[in-house]
């Protein structure tokens, strides 16, 4: 079978027409592309990171002094703010990428870069957040007293450190698993295509 012999037939062929070709109706639908999925994930993260601290603030609103002096809560709010800023920054990048009118090679490279960076940043940020909260749990009881933290500090140091080490391992595997499940296959597919285009 020679391709050139079939060119005429190819160009005369009407091809299968999709059932719905009403353009105005179609553009009202929401996108199911991978970039739309990422945008949705960032949006969800922003909303979640705004709701949780707000919930804790509302919960403690009757006791403003305790609220203002709660180091752990404010540290958590700072962490949430960091995540919100990072997610919003990513959201804007994805928003700019949507429409995908770049050359195919450029578009694929951009998508690989975005996914890899997101996974790398997420991994680093989670590691730092965990270190930060462990330090907080270890240091805060020297300045402020919380019933739960005091109980935790009544345990031998070796057990506490063992639990922290366990948390690091768990966090590493959970993050790798989630990333692989959500983006792993697609990222591999995109990387293969980029390699194919070299």
């Amino acid at each position: 079978m020679e391709l050139d012999d079939l060119k005429q037939t190819w160009n005369q062929n009407q091809s299968t027409k999709p059932l719905n070709t009403d353009i105005m109706e179609l553009i009202q639908h929401k996108s199911y592309g991978p970039l739309a999925a990422l945008k949705k994930a960032f949006r969800k993260q922003i909303v979640l990171m705004a709701i949780i601290p707000a919930y804790f603030i509302i919960l403690n609103v009757d006791n403003p002094d305790a609220l203002l002096n709660n180091v752990i809560l404010w540290s958590y709010i700072a962490f949430c703010l960091g995540v919100i800023i990072f997610s919003y920054y990513n959201y804007r990048i994805v928003n700019k990428m949507e429409g995908m009118d770049h050359m195919v090679k450029v578009n694929l490279e951009q998508q690989v870069d975005l996914l890899e960076k997101r996974m790398k940043w997420k991994k680093t940020a989670l590691m730092f957040a965990l270190i930060f909260f462990i330090l907080l749990i270890e240091i805060v009881p020297y300045f402020q007293h919380y019933r739960m933290l005091d109980k935790w500090h009544s345990l031998p140091a070796a057990i506490r450190y063992l639990v922290y080490a366990g948390l690091f391992v768990l966090q590493y595997f959970a993050n790798t698993f989630v990333n692989e499940r959500r983006y792993g296959r697609h990222l591999k597919y995109l990387k293969e295509l980029v390699k194919e285009m070299q």
């Binding site: 991978p34 970039l35 999925a37 995908m100 959500r182």
Partner: peptide, 19 residues
């Protein structure tokens, strides 16, 4: 460009995430 980029990037079904 847009059509091929969209087709190559693949679609994401509601529950299957990116496929």
């Amino acid at each position: 460009r847009v059509a091929l980029n969209t087709a190559i990037s693949g679609l994401r079904k509601k529950k299957n995430l990116i496929r």
